[in-house]
């Protein structure tokens, strides 16, 4: 069977390598993807349209805002599905496995984590809020924030982390993230634009049209960060404890 499965692998490999000859060379400025009017437009006009120096953030949150909104919804639904699959699945099963041992949290580890976690969380907020002018944004900041809670759960136990960020609050925060994103979209719709047309927010913000897009992007990124941070922790908490949400690894 293993040898048999090598046949399609080799066929696909040969076809891909054959097709590889037609691809642009490494770093080719004239490659179709780089020469296309879409990406050139993004590079040339992001500053004029939105005054955001980081083009990736501008494309992510403004030009392709609809796409990003539903990517966030996908992350949210994945978290919900993990809870639905694992909740109550281990009822009536032995609480403790053979490899689980009774152990006190290590002094050195916990004290180090006590020092590190606030720094990680502040850095997460920095990455989130500074995503316009430097590499960063909602997804990255959210993952950092979720990782800080996972670090707490790893160094103490899951209960400690759950007492800081209970699962109900996780779901609330995750839902609020999407509500914030969709709310900004709906607000710009109510102000006379299209859905997620942030420029219309100038009517309620004391800034120009470009800067309205700039600030709306920050709001949208915060929404994304909320959802991603909460769902990352939900994923860890459920997978590490088989849905029991106790003890953990």
């Amino acid at each position: 069977m293993k040898l048999f499965s090598l046949i399609p692998v080799f066929v696909i490999g040969v076809l891909l390598l054959w097709a590889g000859q037609d691809f642009p060379k490494w770093g080719d400025v004239e490659s179709p993807a780089s020469k296309s009017p879409v990406s050139s437009h993004f590079i040339a006009n992001t500053g004029v349209d939105t005054e955001v120096p980081n083009m990736v953030t501008a494309v992510l949150a403004d030009y392709r805002g609809f796409d990003t909104m539903f990517e966030t919804v996908v992350v949210f639904i994945a978290g919900m599905a993990v809870i639905a699959i694992l909740r109550g699945s281990s009822v009536g099963r032995p609480r403790r496995k053979d490899h689980e041992v009774e152990a006190e949290p290590d002094l050195i580890v916990t004290n180090t984590v006590r020092l590190i976690v606030p720094v990680i969380q502040i850095f997460a907020f920095y990455v989130l809020a500074h995503g316009h002018v430097s590499p960063g944004g909602g997804f990255q900041g959210g993952v950092l924030m979720g990782a800080s809670f996972i670090l707490i759960a790893l160094s103490w136990d899951l209960e400690k982390a759950m007492s800081r960020f209970p699962i109900e609050r996780c779901l609330f925060v995750a839902a609020m993230g999407i509500v914030l994103y969709g709310g900004i979209g709906l607000l710009s719709m109510m102000l006379g634009g299209e859905f997620l047309d942030y420029a219309e927010l100038e009517k309620i913000l004391p800034v120009s049209r470009e800067m309205a897009r700039y600030h709306a992007m920050l709001g949208v990124e915060i929404g994304v960060g909320f959802t991603v941070a909460a769902i990352m922790f939900v994923l860890y908490a459920n997978l590490a404890s088989e849905g029991r949400l106790k003890q953990g690894l």
Partner: peptide
């Protein structure tokens, strides 16, 4: 080119 970076940014998280 910023566009592939945007696409992959979301693809990684999803």
């Amino acid at each position: 080119n910023p566009l592939p970076h945007v696409l992959m940014l979301t693809a990684i998280v999803v």
